[in-house]
Design a protein around this nucleic acid. Structure first.
Ligand SMILES: [Mn+2]
Ligand SMILES: [Mn+2]
Ligand SMILES: [Zn+2]
Ligand SMILES: [Zn+2]
Lengths: 132, 132
DNA sequence: AATAAACTTAGAATTATTCTAAAAAAGGCT
DNA sequence: AGCCTTTTTTAGAATAATTCTAAGTTTATT
């Protein structure tokens, strides 16, 4: 077992060669790549895999909360390294997507008027705008 | 001019027969219909229109801030009556989508750590979960 | 080893949305 | 009203991200 194989463990998910590869490729690409972009990366590696497998791996990783999906409008789904709670900012000047963290101690229910006792299983926040 | 034609005015947008129809159909359907669902509604009316026109009209109305788009994951885009700032709750028990209002006096920047001076042009908040 | 379950794969299929190019409608002007 | 220009509508074709299928491969279990 190599030194940094630890971070490739995902509780409850069998880490196949392909899943490890996809996960690692995403960890090395901070700018929220699409499935196709990750597939292109795979093609350049020593053991390429099919596009269907890239989709399958990403789905498995999302399902096990190891990575996040990012949907901006109807654009192709992008994938995010950051498994922690956060939102996304789509900079209309550059077209890039940035992570936006919550202010410490705050949460969605601070500003949203949800019925008492609502169970939130997931959320997605995307902001479009321009940086100063 | 009929009594309730007033609400069909959208500043800066020529309100054609089709745009009025699409707008009215959406105002009469509170459960966030898709373009196809609105198209089906149109077919049952006295003057049906093409699906492309439904898409065109919805796009024009969105562009002029008369209605909103709602994207939940990769599902077909839904359209929302409510032009005011709000989020959406996707109830996983029923599959329905509800509007979620901001608590009075609060805003996104209360909880999100955006760079000082960021200009927000649009945002989308979707929450998945279960009601009590 | 044998069996079963999970995973990968190529390629086909799906389908929401967009595009194209032509007809129709609307608006402006005289 | 007529003429000209711009916008809108339309049917149908095209696009493309994603999912599906069914067969092979790998992995786990007995
Ligand atoms: Mn993210
Ligand atoms: Mn809405
Ligand atoms: Zn991110
Ligand atoms: Zn709504």
């Amino acid at each position: 077992m190599k030194a940094n194989d630890q971070q490739l463990q995902v509780p409850g998910l069998r880490m196949t060669k392909q899943r490890k590869e996809v996960y690692r490729a995403l960890m090395e690409n901070a700018d929220h790549p699409t499935a196709s972009e990750l597939y292109e990366t795979m093609q350049k590696s020593n053991d390429p895999m099919s596009l269907a497998t890239v989709y399958n791996c990403l789905e498995a990783l999302v399902e096990h909360d190891a990575i996040k999906q990012v949907n901006v409008d109807r654009n192709p789904t992008r994938y995010c390294q950051n498994a922690a709670q956060h939102g996304h900012f789509h900079d209309q000047n550059t077209g890039t997507i940035h992570d936006i963290n919550f202010k410490p101690g705050t949460q969605l229910t601070d500003i949203l008027d949800l019925p008492e006792g609502t169970e939130i299983t997931d959320f997605e926040i995307t902001i479009k705008g321009r940086l100063p």
